[in-house]
């Protein structure tokens, strides 16, 4: 087993490592901040696993689990937990995260993230599962809020209150997915900013940014969390609200379906860093103004508010223009064969 140097994830933007980009990441080695992978994709022994060992030598790594089903009342799948433990042992990530959701029930894995009925019973169950996870991995794990299309009428608290209680009970951290907040807040009709403000800020160890789709079902406009497009202005605005409150945090650009060329992801990451830098600059200016009586310099403001913003960050636009060629089809793996007839 390789020993990797412990590379700390910086409080800046990183990108999700997607299989169509692996070859380019290995040859080009762009400055991407850090990488995040889905744990389940690295539980086997195929070629992708070998590639990650090489990339781990260059980039700080975050391992993001999708299938552990921390919300399952039936408890954790011990085999899956062991597979996750082995992935963490093998790749030695700086951050590990999973979801506040369930995907396993009645002996079936649904391959989706379903919301909980938020109450004391669920809190006890999830806390127990999170404790088992943290004890097994011997580390703090970040728990992510989800995109919801449904809620349960008998919930006695909301998702933000539940997450805050979970942090208090287990000492876990939080992964704030700003896109998921926007999607859930729209679909279930609550205030997105209030959700973010209700979370314990010192627990938030990472932020996710992604795009979503809009579906019209009769009179119902529902946001669909497909992680298949650019981060839209409304999510950038929420991100700004979060950074304003929290300060710089590791921020991941997530793009899972219709994956674009690598430069587009890198452009989005650069935009996140520029937004954060501008917010911190504005803060410093405001602090200085409070101390001095004469404040003249106007800060460089990259304000992102409502409908007046440009919808495509400049750097991402350059990347898209350079990449204006037929879209690359997403292949889960490349497959070549040679056919030899036996003599």
């Amino acid at each position: 087993m390789s020993i990797f140097s412990p590379l700390a994830i910086p409080a800046s933007a990183g990108i999700g490592l997607r299989s169509p980009h692996i070859a380019e990441m290995l040859t080009r080695r762009p400055s991407a901040g850090w990488l995040e992978v889905h744990a389940e994709n690295y539980m086997g022994d195929g070629a992708g696993v070998e590639a990650l060992e090489k990339l781990r030598q260059i980039y700080p790594l975050s391992v993001h689990g999708v299938g552990l089903s921390l919300g399952s009342a039936g408890g954790l799948d011990r085999d899956h937990l062991e597979r996750l433990r082995k992935v963490c042992e093998r790749f030695q990530p700086d951050l590990v995260s999973e979801h506040l959701a369930w995907s396993v029930a009645d002996g079936a894995y649904l391959n989706d993230l379903l919301p909980l009925r938020y109450d004391e019973e669920a809190l006890a169950i999830v806390a127990r599962n999170v404790e088992t996870l943290q004890d097994t991995l011997k580390r703090r794990v970040l728990i992510e809020n989800l995109s919801a299309y449904l809620a349960f009428t008998d919930s006695s608290m909301n998702e933000a209150e539940f997450l805050a209680a979970l942090v208090e009970r287990t000492g876990c951290g939080l992964l704030l997915d700003v896109n998921n907040v926007q999607v859930s807040a729209h679909n279930l009709q609550y205030d997105a900013k209030a959700f973010i403000d209700a979370l314990p800020e010192e627990a938030i160890g990472e932020i996710h940014l992604a795009g979503h789709a809009t579906n019209q079902v009769g009179s119902d406009t529902v946001l669909i969390d497909d992680h298949g497009s650019r981060v839209p202005p409304v999510v950038w605005a929420l991100y700004q609200h979060a950074i304003d409150r929290l300060g710089p945090r590791p921020t991941l650009i997530e793009w899972d379906t219709d994956v674009p060329v690598l430069d587009v992801l890198l452009g989005e990451a650069m935009w996140a860093d520029m937004l954060t830098a501008s917010i911190m600059f504005t803060r410093k200016q405001a602090a200085r103004r409070e101390q001095t009586t004469n404040a003249r310099a106007a800060p460089i403001c990259l304000s992102v508010e409502g409908e007046t913003t440009t919808s495509m960050p400049v750097l991402a636009a350059f990347a898209a223009a350079r990449a204006a060629r037929p879209s690359i089809s997403l292949a889960l793996r490349s497959l070549e064969e040679e056919f030899h007839a036996a003599a």
């Binding site: 391959n111 989706d112 449904l150 279930l188 079902v217």
Partner: peptide, 23 residues
């Protein structure tokens, strides 16, 4: 047992059905 703001929760359940089946 379900709620979804002003929307029909059973229609929203179809989103989960579609997600699981299509993925």
């Amino acid at each position: 047992l379900l709620t979804a703001g002003k929307a029909d929760p059973l229609a929203r359940l179809r989103i989960y059905q579609n997600n699981t089946r299509s993925s």
